Simulated assay, not measured.
Amino acid sequence: MALERITPLPSDEGILLPIFAEPVAAGFPSPAAGYEENELNLHDYCVRRPSATFFLRVTGDSMRDARIHDGDVLVVDRAEEPCHGSIVIASIDNEFTVKQLQLRPYPCLMPLNPAFSPIRFDPDSLQIWGVVTFTVMSHAP
């Protein structure tokens, strides 16, 4: 799985998009209130620590069962503390990957696709570059 760094365009205010106060039902339809609550800046919503956050584009499908797919953009926070079960950007022997960090019963980087094998590692050879906090995916055909 290859990773491509994405640099956001510099902006003082970001792009503000409308956000509606009423949630949308994923089951049965509900009547819409039909009014906007406020504006939403996706950067403000997805980035808690701007100086510690970066974006990456994913290639490959080793994380498909975590709903991370080829072409998705990951929001990665370097200040977030990785723990058992975190989705992380890791480097082993200067090779980058996105995987789930497993600490029990033995440390490994776990792909979330049964077609791929876990990556066991020597803790001294592993570098965690950050924890994935959001995934941006396209639903357009």
Rank of each mutant, 00 (worst) to 15 (best):
S117N: 15
N113L: 00
V131I: 10
G60M: 05
T53Q: 06
R67E: 13
Y45W: 09
V47N: 03
L9G: 01
E81R: 07
F116E: 04
G14Y: 01
P111W: 04
V132M: 04
P10A: 00
P105F: 09
R49D: 13
A26L: 12
V131S: 14
P111R: 08
S51T: 14
S91V: 14
I87A: 09
L109W: 10
Q127H: 10
D12F: 13
Q100Y: 10
P31Q: 00
V24A: 09
L9T: 13
V24M: 10
N94Q: 08
F20Q: 03
S138R: 14
R49S: 12
M137V: 06
K99E: 14
D124R: 11
L101A: 12
P10L: 01
F134H: 14
R57V: 01
A21E: 11
P50L: 03
M137L: 11
K99A: 15
M1N: 13
I19F: 02
W129H: 15
R67P: 06
L126Q: 04
H139R: 15
N38T: 12
A140Q: 10
M1Y: 10
E36N: 01
P10N: 00
V75W: 06
F55N: 04
V88M: 03
M137K: 15
R48L: 03
V73G: 12
C46W: 00
F96A: 02
A2F: 09
I92Q: 01
P31R: 10
P10T: 02
P107D: 00
A32K: 05
I89H: 04
D72K: 11
C108K: 08
D70A: 04
R120H: 12
V47H: 08
S117C: 14
L126K: 04
G130T: 09
I128L: 12
V73K: 13
V73R: 13
I92L: 09
I128R: 02
R49A: 15
E81Y: 02
I15Q: 03
G60L: 05
D12M: 04
L101R: 02
Q100E: 15
A90K: 06
N113V: 01
V76I: 07
L3Y: 14
R64M: 09
P118T: 13
R48W: 00
A33W: 02
E22Y: 03
M137E: 12
R104P: 00
P82S: 13
F134V: 04
E22I: 00
C108M: 12
P8C: 00
R78W: 02
P114N: 05
M1Q: 08
M63R: 10
P29S: 12
P118L: 03
E13F: 13
G27S: 05
D77N: 11
L101Q: 07
H139F: 15
G60H: 13
R49Q: 12
V98W: 07
P111K: 11
C108P: 02
R49V: 06
R78N: 07
F55K: 05
C108V: 07
E36C: 09
A115Q: 13
